[in-house]
Structures are given as C-alpha cells and as structure tokens.
Design a protein around this nucleic acid. Structure first.
Length: 115
DNA sequence: GTCATGACGGATC
DNA sequence: GGATCCGCCATGA
C-alpha cells in the first residue's frame, strides 16, 4: 500500500472511535502502517477535518492534546461530556477507555503478556 | 528535489 | 519523578 492514503486512513480510523472511548496517536499511526508517525497524526488533526472526533484522540500518557482548540481544558470538557473521567491533571485512564478497532484488538496481550 | 515543521514517543539528564 | 533532547516520518512550501 502507499502512504498516500495515510491521512485518509487516519481520518477514517478517528471517525470510527465510539463515543466514550479514546485512541492514542501512536496507536492510530501504527494501525495506519507507520508506528513512528504519531506526530503526523497530530499534524492531520490540526489541519484536518474538524468534523472528526479528534477529542477522542489522546497521547500515550492519556494526556490531552496541547494544541486543541480552546486548550486542554476544552478538550477535557469534551471527553468528559462522553462519560470519560479526567483527573485534575487532565489525564485519562487509558486502561479503562482505550479502544481498538475490531480488526486488530490485541486483548490477548493482557493474558499472555510477553514483550 | 530540498527544508522545515508538528495536537508524539521514547530515551536520557 | 520531572524536564529536556533527539528522532520520527508524512506534509506543505
């Protein structure tokens, strides 16, 4: 495949995140074929389609986006509106809200846990 | 074609 | 445990 569709894949993936769930930039990038392109996802977010639920995209620490329109506070309000708990530092519990598409849900990792 | 950038990630100090 | 630096790689000028 070609990275030309990278942006398009990211957009579709973000659009498929259900309400009340979140994905990380690195996770999205990996699913789009480039695990090291997390920043690219961020770039797409800024200049991409505002209609997409970018507020459901957080960084690997579960932290809110730095350049979100309105600031991290606005981001926090938006995710909270979907039932996601955010602590005082603006950190989301990824273990509880992380979501994977049906296609590549590595929930088996929790049982085996290798790495 | 080259250069700079970015809503990140991971390693290092 | 927090702050900082560097690398990453697609994108736009």
């Amino acid at each position: 495949m070609h990275h030309q569709l990278f942006k398009d894949r990211v957009c579709q993936l973000v659009a498929s995140i259900p309400s009340g769930k979140v994905m990380t930039y690195g996770q999205i990038a990996a699913l789009c074929g480039s695990p090291r392109s997390a920043r690219i996802v961020g770039g797409i977010a800024h200049f991409g389609d505002d209609a997409l639920p970018w507020h459901r995209v957080v960084n690997k620490r579960g932290g809110l986006a730095s350049g979100y329109p309105g600031g991290r506070r606005a981001h926090a309000l938006h995710v909270r509106a979907e039932g996601i708990k955010v602590d005082n530092k603006g950190i989301i519990d990824l273990a509880m809200y992380i979501w994977w598409p049906e296609d590549g849900q590595p929930e088996q990792r929790t049982t085996h846990d290798k790495e």
